[in-house]
Design a protein around this nucleic acid. Sequence first.
DNA 1: CGACCAATTGAAGAATTCTTCAAGTCATCT
DNA 2: AGATGACTTGAAGAATTCTTCAATTGGTCG
Lengths: 113, 113
Amino acid sequence: MPVPLYQAKAEFFRILGHPVRIRVLELLQGGPMPVRDLLAEIDVEPSSLSQQLAVLRRAGIVSATREGSTVVYELSTSDIADLMRAARRILTEMITSREGLLAELKAAEEEDR
Amino acid sequence: MPVPLYQAKAEFFRILGHPVRIRVLELLQGGPMPVRDLLAEIDVEPSSLSQQLAVLRRAGIVSATREGSTVVYELSTSDIADLMRAARRILTEMITSREGLLAELKAAEEEDR
DNA sequence: CGACCAATTGAAGAATTCTTCAAGTCATCT
DNA sequence: AGATGACTTGAAGAATTCTTCAATTGGTCG
């Protein structure tokens, strides 16, 4: 019996809900990347990055292959990019509409003087 | 100084990472809905649903308006639907590719006999 | 082989998030 | 006003997740 889809969805989003993991996914959108390079871009300690990479790996969102002494990561599916795009659209939408609200409040405040 | 976008993204996904909250968002895609109806669809206690609705409200993802003695919720932005669609695509993709892998493993196992 | 770099793992304590229950608010009805 | 129904809130303990550090694995080089 399969896990209900809404539960799988929740779990999936929960996995994305971490700053380091998001950074990793954003970087991997440009193509496969060795840990070394991820480390250079994301301000975090090696062991900490590894922990988060392990989370993404267990969830099947990224996969790793060893090449000599370095390990290269890549997205399991390029669809991730769409998701990120959708998220960005929502966030900018939410932020600008909230700024709009703030502006209105501020204007109302001015009028009160 | 604004919060870095990747951090806002992580926070946003974290908010989506809960089964009840996902169910709510799915249901609200059909349009505004009173708490009563949400309660009828989602197997959860009233106070528990309220807690999760509060999380979504604080994040600005849904908004509530009181109409008489009932409270009606709705999505703050309809873009949420796109996000859900993208997530569903990724999940089904990941699941089917994993099933493919399982099938291969099973076949290899047969050969071993 | 021994030293060293790259990355991962295990484990423990700290921090966050969930669940639940009792109490509270707001509107409606008699 | 008092009682009832619809939701929400606050708070405490349980459960999860994060962070960090020490130990470990795999590979390369002298």
